[in-house]
Design a protein around this nucleic acid. Sequence first.
DNA 1: ATGTAATATTGCAATATTACGATATTAAAA
DNA 2: TTTTAATATCGTAATATTGCAATATTACAT
Lengths: 107, 107
Amino acid sequence: MGASKLHIYSEEINQMATMAKVFAHPARLSILQYISKQDSCICNDIVDEIGLSQPTISQHLKVINEAGLLKGSFEGKSICYCLNVDRFQEFQSHLNTFFNTTASNCC
Amino acid sequence: MGASKLHIYSEEINQMATMAKVFAHPARLSILQYISKQDSCICNDIVDEIGLSQPTISQHLKVINEAGLLKGSFEGKSICYCLNVDRFQEFQSHLNTFFNTTASNCC
DNA sequence: ATGTAATATTGCAATATTACGATATTAAAA
DNA sequence: TTTTAATATCGTAATATTGCAATATTACAT
């Protein structure tokens, strides 16, 4: 054994865990922060900024992107990544709902 | 290689990632929800409720506890776990700060 | 078409996480 | 003191994650 037993939890809980996982690595938090600080963002910029290899950054970007947190637009041979603010705030809202409902019930 | 390169990030970012990690597993989310629903909580109750073995639950409880999210009081041979609401709300507040500052800077 | 720069994918090694059986610990009960 | 019930820890197997070198892809420039 070793894998998470996802089937024993509700869909809602699993989604929440998946969302949290995106934020559970400092590289991804740094990337999100960095993207938000720029007007736009090119992957190699982040490589210089953060100090991980290009493939590793690319992999983290993929995780962030698959969570729906990026909007990308092509600019010549490079890609301009932008934060999908709507989706980002959706994440925030879901997490706050979890926090609020959980805390309010407590002894 | 394979381990996270924690030294290349700021203390703040690392702390945030550590916090998110607590919420990045459905079992831990379920445990937090379950604890908050009860007045008090005994580990074996959660075992029946969630469907993981007693050692596994105990391990997850340890992670949650090490994050400072539990208040425990002994009741005979069992332990009454309670959510540390103050700490919980501290988490919420930190995460919201990250979300707000990140989103507001964005293009 | 060929070269070049930017990004993605593949393959793999190192490490971390998850889960559980077996066992230890703890404290009340008999 | 022995038993019993609740929880923690240990050891280990399975799986996931992280990181990077090598390579592939993509799209512009020459």
